Amino acid sequence: MRALLAERQCLVVLDNARDEGQQSSWPGLVPLDTTEQARAWLESEASAWLATLRGAAARGEHARVAATAEAMEGFANVCAFSGYWTEVYHLSSEAAAALDDPRLRAAQLSMYCWALANEYRAEEAVARADEALEHARRAGDVSQQARAMYYASWPCGQLGRDEQRMEKLRAAADLFEAAGDHEGWTFSMLSYRTSRASSAAPRSPWPCTSVSSPSWTRPTAG
C-alpha cells in the first residue's frame, strides 16, 4: 500500500509539472499546492519520480511521458548535470516515436542530444540531433529544425569539429530568423561569434565558452 501511495504521489507531481500552473487536489503527504512546491519535490525525490516515469513508459502511457518531459525542460535548465536527464529524454523520445508525432520527436530528440552531450557522449548526441533535424523537416517545423542544428553544434565542438560546429550555428541562426525566433537567433549568433574567437584557444569540451568558464545556454522551446 505504501508503494502504491508513493507511486500515486509521483504521478500527481508529474502531472503538475506537465500542467503548468494547475493545482492538485491530491491529499498526499507532500504539499503540492503550487508549481514551485512540485518542482522542489521533484528535485528532492528524483529517484522516486524517475521510477514512476519509467513505470508510465512501461505501461505505454506515451502521451503522459512525452508531455511531462516537455514541461520539465525548464527544470532541466537549472539542474543540467543532475544525472537523470539522459534517461528522461530517452524515454520521451521513445514515447514521441510511439505517438508518431514528428514535431514532438524532433523536440525530444534535440533534448536527448543535449543530455547526451552533458555526459560527453558526443557521437551519440550528434546522431540524435541528426534524427531530430530529419523529423523537424518531416513536420515542416522551421523552429525545431533550428533547435536541432543549434543542439548539434555542442557535441560537434566536443569532437573537435570546429568548422562543422560553426556551420551548424550559422544554419541555426538562419533558421531561427526564418521562424521569427529572435532569442534563438541571438543565442546562435553569440555562440557562433564566440566559437570563431576561441577557435585557436586550447581545446575545451564546451564549444561556446572559454576553457576556464564553461556554460551552455539553450533557447527556450519554440
Rank of each mutant, 00 (worst) to 15 (best):
L4A: 12
E7M: 02
R8C: 01
Q9M: 07
Q9A: 08
N16M: 13
D19N: 15
S25P: 02
S25M: 04
W26D: 07
W26Q: 02
P31S: 10
A38V: 03
A40G: 09
W41F: 14
W41H: 09
E45M: 13
A46Y: 11
S47R: 13
W49L: 10
G55S: 03
A57P: 01
E61G: 00
A69D: 08
E73I: 15
G74R: 10
N77L: 14
E87F: 05
V88A: 02
Y89S: 00
A95W: 00
A96W: 04
A97G: 07
D100G: 01
P102S: 05
L104V: 11
A106T: 07
L109M: 11
C113D: 06
R121C: 00
A125R: 06
V126S: 03
A129G: 04
A129Q: 03
D130F: 02
E131L: 13
A136H: 13
R147N: 08
A152N: 02
W154Q: 12
P155Q: 08
C156N: 08
L159T: 03
R165F: 06
E167G: 07
R170G: 09
E177I: 12
D181V: 13
H182A: 15
W185I: 02
T194C: 09
S198D: 07
S198G: 02
A201R: 06
P202I: 02
S204A: 04
S204L: 01
W206R: 05
A221D: 04
A221N: 02
